[in-house]
Design a protein around this nucleic acid. Structure first.
Lengths: 210, 210
DNA sequence: ATTAATATTAACCAATTAGTCAGGATGTTA
DNA sequence: TAACATCCTGACTAATTGGTTAATATTAAT
């Protein structure tokens, strides 16, 4: 019990510092890339001395790994799932809405992930190979079932998943570009709803669901 | 005439070296990011001594700028345009096909661009602000004209452009992930045609053009 | 108060990096 | 051949980087 109490208290400090560090690190990695983000710049952003960063994380690559894990977990949790219960229309609608909301609310998460993949997914090969491949197979089978059942038109399920991914993540990864083109400083709640409406509309119609 | 001849000859050596360097640099910048790509690594890839690289380009940032310009020019030239002459169906079809082909044939170009935007478009702010904004406005107006004319359903033209951009570029930027999920080592010509067919099909139907 | 574990950080170091430069090679023109 | 310009590169430097260390501070339990 006393040992429990101790680990809990020290754990709290640990966790609190680590969260602060990981948040700063995520920002730096997005802004500067892996190599461009220095331990010092992460320390500055976290308002901690550099040596303190390296007390909590053995080295820079460990920080990056932690950021990556942390981020993927949050992302996966936030985007929900495509479930068979409610038919293709509701399922796709819900999935698009969840992904768009995540993109607008946590663009950094999507960006970290995007940069990792663009650069060759050195740290994520296994993740894509096992977890994602499995997920896509499963959902593709579900779409195929709906297609065979005549509930939606015959489109390639795997590429449909890629389409939904790309179209939704785009608003996170390319937010700078989109804001510039739209001549806005920030996104408003109304932009989010408009994007959800637009993407649902066009993709559902594309799938013969409207 | 003799001076002309001279500049042409020396120019040839210059251009030949610069092309080699820029190609190596583009690869390094994609693989390692701006900071991660070292002048030495570019030199190694170009099979030239480091000092030779810095003889042709004053410094690392100049190399990056040259790569960026070079790449954007090539990309813009390759994706063609959306022209009013042939109506929305043919226009969108052609644009999708051109973008998908560019994505598969020059993924590095798209990747360089994507990384730049994700990191905040420090070097491209003006490009997006002037050139791209103008382009999007123009094309949006064209789509709106088709919509008002009853030639396609009422979807937001600007977001339609974003959708086509994201869906097509995805195959360049995320090629690693896509190949892993599709369990392939490389893309084949047949993959390219399949993607073009899929995206044309679903987007055109989404626009009420099928 | 004592002990022991944990937390903190200034100072330091070895390695890497971008960029310089001086001297030499190569080619070109007259 | 001589004069000139361009091209090339090994060797160097100053600055930055990731990471270590050793000494100090804080906290918690007995």
């Amino acid at each position: 019990m006393s040992s429990d109490n101790q680990t809990k208290k020290t754990g709290n400090i640990r966790v609190k510092s680590q969260v602060k560090i990981l948040s700063a690190a995520r920002t730096e990695f997005v802004l500067q890339g892996y190599r461009g983000a220095t331990v010092q710049s992460i320390a500055d952003r976290a308002e901690l001395p550099k040596a303190n960063i390296l007390y909590y994380f053995k080295n820079k690559e460990n920080i990056y790994h932690a950021v990556l894990e942390n981020t993927l977990e949050m992302w996966d949790q936030g985007i929900g799932d495509i479930v068979p219960d409610e038919g293709p229309k509701i399922a796709i609608e819900k999935f698009i809405a969840a992904k768009v909301r995540m993109s607008f609310n946590h663009p950094e998460a999507s960006k970290i992930y995007a940069m990792e993949i663009i650069q060759g997914a050195q740290h994520l090969k296994d993740y894509a190979r096992t977890y994602q491949r499995q997920w896509v197979r499963e959902k593709a089978k579900l779409f195929q079932h709906w297609i065979d059942n005549g509930e939606m038109v015959n489109v390639d399920p795997v590429h449909l998943i890629f389409l939904i991914w790309s179209a939704t993540q785009h608003y996170a990864d390319f937010d700078t570009q989109i804001l510039t083109i739209m001549n806005q400083a920030d996104f408003e709640e109304h932009d989010v709803e408009q994007v959800i409406a637009f993407l649902s509309d066009i993709i559902l119609r594309g799938c013969g669901l409207i």
